[in-house]
């Protein structure tokens, strides 16, 4: 396996592109999860008058 300091500029750019893609996916997953919990809480409060 090649050392990171030996990477070509193209490899560094590709590494950053992949990392950016993973970060966006994680952001979407966490944001979606927060919205989901928020929506469930609203439904529970409005329809059942309770949280649990």
């Amino acid at each position: 396996m090649m050392k990171t300091e030996d990477w070509t500029p193209e490899m560094v750019a590709e590494f950053k592109r992949r990392r950016r893609g993973r970060n966006y996916l994680l952001l979407a997953a966490l944001g979606g999860f927060c919205l989901l919990i928020y929506a469930i809480a609203l439904v529970k409060l409005h329809e059942y008058g309770q949280m649990w």
Partner: peptide, 17 residues
């Protein structure tokens, strides 16, 4: 360009996909 060159490269980490 990068997709073609590094399509099978494992040391650069995983794609989101």
């Amino acid at each position: 360009m990068s997709d073609t060159v590094f399509a099978n490269s494992t040391e650069l980490g995983a794609e989101a996909s």
